[in-house]
Nucleic acid binder design. Sequence first.
DNA 1: ATCATTATGTACCAAACGGTACATAATAGG
DNA 2: CCTATTATGTACCGTTTGGTACATAATGAT
Lengths: 194, 194
Amino acid sequence: MSGRPKIFEEEEVVGKAAALFWLKGYEASSTEELLVAMGIGKGSFYLAFKGGKRELFEKVLTAVSKQELKQLRDRLAIAENQVEIIKDLFRNIGLASRETNEKGCLFGHTIADFSARDLALTNIAAQHLQQLEEIFHQVILRALEKGQLRTSEDPALLASHLITVWNGLGISRRISSQSGSLSPLIEMQLKVLL
Amino acid sequence: MSGRPKIFEEEEVVGKAAALFWLKGYEASSTEELLVAMGIGKGSFYLAFKGGKRELFEKVLTAVSKQELKQLRDRLAIAENQVEIIKDLFRNIGLASRETNEKGCLFGHTIADFSARDLALTNIAAQHLQQLEEIFHQVILRALEKGQLRTSEDPALLASHLITVWNGLGISRRISSQSGSLSPLIEMQLKVLL
DNA sequence: ATCATTATGTACCAAACGGTACATAATAGG
DNA sequence: CCTATTATGTACCGTTTGGTACATAATGAT
């Protein structure tokens, strides 16, 4: 039944590859570098990921998406004031370290990179953003019901707007000189959630 | 003094290269493809652009930046209501064709691509956005003086915010299904300029 | 112990990449 | 018309790329 044992777990090496892709982008991360980062050899890699680098990136995208969405949903599930959780999501961009900020948003980056040449990957990234938008939407709707929010804007548009700002900040954060410099901007931007 | 005549103008081929870079990004545009798009051979190319592909891209960035900023400044110079010009800039994203939209924002894209590996190119793109932001800033200040604008937000922050939205829309437009679908969102976003 | 099975590391490879070398062509000046 | 000068096209090249082939190692089952 079972031969030589694996020396790695897929989830783990996908995570390590994610860090590199996130930092350097797809093309600029060579397979060699990725193997070093993942700590496995070519033999193991191409056995586990028959589709090579592209399949790896696809798995990275879905894994990161799943993880980020779960993390957010978990936080929302136990929160008294869900809107504050969303706001904190944005505030954290302002507070994050320089290294974290230089990574920007993996999904925005992916769309920029691939929208002209790989529909499948673009769709995965687009879907992530759509799901994030849907979460924003639901939070806004519930907050309106509870009277925690007194905006007169269309909740769906408001959610779209937040995604726009999210993606925009994903670029701004990459070129913001110091950690914290985006905070005043973000605070202003969050006034749409009053 | 002068030998064999050139069969191309630098400005012209830089423009043609820009279209390809803009559509496909830096890495995905091979030198071969670029040469075809520009309509010149390797000999001419490497004579005119000693720095090769990278120098070409740098010239593309500066050329597009210069052109776009000039166009905007010219429009502002003859406008009665400058704020409307800025608003139209955003509205045009909503109205643009699918092909135009798929190009997204060259400068945002460049930052995403290069911020982790090429400071010089990143800076050119960042500078463009800063100049755009400065234009927004000035327009807002003047509109406030003239009483054309009655916002209580800090003009500098407002300009930063507009750049954020600009960059965010640069991503959204790449995945928006149909032309025009972003317009309601953009109209809502422009309410910060009241 | 041997065998089937699965994983690993290494040697190897074809293709594409960006870039160079160089022979040749077209102009202006003398 | 010859020469200096500049531009062009083509043949070529070294590297790097992502990827494959294969011999070998480690396990469970019999």
